[in-house]
Design a protein around this nucleic acid. Structure first.
Lengths: 153, 153
DNA sequence: GGAAAAGGTTGCATCAAGAAACCAAATACA
DNA sequence: TGTATTTGGTTTCTTGATGCAACCTTTTCC
C-alpha cells in the first residue's frame, strides 16, 4: 500500500513529519548543519546507501529545505546547501539532541557550543508570551473557536 | 536487509531518532499530549492501523517513553500514559509545530495556548548560556578535545 | 591522455507498512 | 443473568521502502 499521507491529518506536526519525518532526512539536515555539502561526504559521514541518499536529497530539495547548486567549472559538480527553511530546523535538531542527552546519556562524540563564547548552549525551554516556562501540563489545545480539547495527564 | 541501527552512529540526534524517529511515534506522542490514553482513541484519532499502533505503543513502552497501566476492574483494560521522559519531548513537538506553521502555513485545526493566560506560546529560541539568541551560524561543533569541526554556511 | 573521483542509476533480496479478518476477555445493557 | 458490544490485540497477505552491490557517465587531477 501507499504510505499514509500525513499532510491531510489537520495537524502541523504531521505536516512537518511529512517533509522531514523519515529515518534519514533529519540526519542529513544535521550533517548539513555540521558543514557537509558534497554528496560523497554525506554518504561517508552517515553511512547511508547512495540510492537512499539520492532520494532524500532530492526530496529535501523539492520541499525547499535544501538547494542543489552546480559548482563544477565545466559542468556538473554539485553542492547541497541548507535554505533558510532548512536552517530554521535548528531548534528541532537541538531539541532532539538535548532530549537524547538528558535521557540516554551523552553518546555523542561532539558537542554544541556558542561560537562567540565557546560555552555550551542553554537548554531549550517552551515559554509563554510573558516568558514563563511551560510544561505540557501548562498548555491547552484549543480549536479554531477557542474551545479547549482535553489535555495530557 | 535489517533497518540500519542509528544508536551506534556516535550522535545524540541519531540516538533520539532511533527511539522516536519513525513516521508514527511522534504523532502518537503528540496525541498523548493532547490527552488521549486509550488504544481505540489513538486509533481513531490518528487513523493508524491496529498492528502498527500495537507495535509503536509497545516500542514506546520499551523505551520508557510511555507506560501501560491496567485500569480494568476485573482484568485487562489498558491505558497508555506518557512518562516524564515522554512529556519531556514537549519541546521537540513544539519545535516541529512552529517550524511547520512558519514555513507551510497553519494547516492545523487546533492551537496551543498557555493554560494560565489563554495566549499563544512564544516561539522557541536556541540561546547561549548568557541568553543570546543563536542561529546555526552562531554555533560550533567541537569534538571531545574541544577541537572545532567545520560548520554550515 | 589515463586514472581516479563525483554523482547517480539499476537490479535484487529483505524488511516494514497498511488493510482486513479474526479472536478472547471485559464491559454495557436489557 | 444472558447477550451484544467494546477493547486490545494477532494473523495473513499484499505492497512499498531499505540496503547492498554492480555499473555508468561526466569531470577533475596529474
Amino acid at each position: 500500500m501507499t504510505r499514509k499521507r500525513f499532510d491531510d491529518l489537520g495537524c502541523s506536526v504531521a505536516c512537518a513529519l511529512n517533509e522531514v519525518g523519515d529515518w534519514w532526512s533529519l540526519l542529513v539536515i544535521k550533517q548539513a548543519m555540521l558543514g557537509t555539502r558534497r554528496f560523497v561526504d554525506f554518504q561517508s559521514g552517515l553511512g547511508i546507501a547512495k540510492n537512499i541518499l539520492c532520494d532524500r536529497l532530492s526530496r529535501l530539495v523539492d520541499n525547499g529545505v535544501m538547494t542543489r547548486v552546480n559548482v563544477g567549472e565545466h559542468g556538473t559538480r554539485y553542492e547541497y546547501r541548507l535554505t533558510d527553511k532548512g536552517r530554521d530546523l535548528f531548534a528541532v535538531v537541538v531539541a532532539l539532541r538535548q532530549w537524547s542527552e538528558r535521557w540516554n546519556g551523552n553518546r555523542d562524540d561532539m558537542q554544541l557550543v556558542a561560537r562567540a563564547t565557546g560555552e555550551a548552549i542553554a537548554p531549550l525551554v517552551v515559554q509563554s508570551a510573558d516568558g514563563e516556562a511551560l510544561t505540557v501540563r501548562d498548555v491547552l489545545f484549543v480549536d479554531e473557536n477557542g474551545q479547549p480539547l482535553e489535555r495530557a495527564g
